[in-house]
Amino acid sequence: MPPDSDPTEYKVGRLIDKYDLDGLGQELEDRWLGRGYESQSLRSLADWFNKYILEEKFNRAGEPPMDGEIDNIYRLLTDDEVTSGMRLDAETALEEKDIDPENTRKEFVSHQSVYVYLTEHRGASKQHSSKDRIGSARDTIQRLQSRLIAVIENHLEQLRNAGELTIGEFTVLIDIQILCEDCGSSYSLTDLFDRGGCDCE
């Protein structure tokens, strides 16, 4: 299904337009659907896209990254287990290349942003057989998450416009975590679906 909306209505589309990354939207769709690539989860696609944007920032700053540098900087900026000192070192390294670390973090997209862009703008859809209950559940939940995000965004914008809430440009993030009380393992819903279960025998 060809795109029938303005891509800049979506965060992913705005970034593709900003950095002149023609063809990246098609590659995102192909990677999600497994056309010419091994099918990737939305979370891994978000990480892949964010690293692509980070590398583009390096190139535009005239500082082509060394092997492994993008993966390392991205991990230091986004991993909750990274110490504040290590994160500060990464931010300093970016500033030395005239790359704004705070703006960089703001431009990183969530897996939900990728899903909304692919399904609403590009019209992409994963077709599942009637036996694929996980696939069906995944699609249903992602649609509900997207709807909830849209409702939250709408209310926040109305409150801001009415002067009842002070907030700058914002992104609504919804992260569902599943805790298995038997084995104690915890996963995001996407990761639990991707791996096919928890650590229970």
Rank of each mutant, 00 (worst) to 15 (best):
L192Q: 07
G197N: 06
W32R: 05
S129D: 15
D4F: 13
F193P: 00
A93F: 13
D4V: 10
H128L: 07
I178Q: 14
R35N: 09
D30R: 15
G196E: 07
T190K: 05
T140L: 14
I152C: 07
K57Q: 04
N72G: 08
G23Y: 02
K11Q: 11
D30H: 11
L77D: 06
F170R: 13
E96I: 02
Y52G: 01
E95I: 12
A61Y: 12
I178P: 09
R147V: 10
E107D: 13
P7H: 11
R133N: 14
E63W: 13
A137L: 10
I16M: 12
C180M: 06
Y74I: 05
D182Q: 10
L144A: 13
E181F: 12
G23V: 04
I99Q: 09
E9V: 06
T104N: 00
S186G: 05
L54A: 14
G25F: 03
P101M: 04
G196N: 06
G25P: 02
L189T: 06
A61G: 11
G184I: 08
E9P: 05
P64R: 09
G13R: 02
I16D: 01
K97P: 07
C180L: 08
L77V: 13
L88A: 13
G163K: 10
I149E: 08
G135P: 01
S39V: 09
N161F: 15
A61Q: 04
D132N: 12
L118A: 05
G163M: 01
G34T: 08
S186N: 15
G197F: 00
E153C: 14
I70Y: 03
G168W: 09
F193V: 05
E27M: 08
E69N: 14
S125R: 10
S146Y: 09
G36Y: 04
I141E: 04
E107F: 09
A90G: 10
V114Y: 00
L192P: 00
S129M: 02
E69I: 03
F108E: 12
A162P: 15
F58H: 10
S130W: 15
L159G: 09
R195N: 03
V82E: 09
A150S: 10
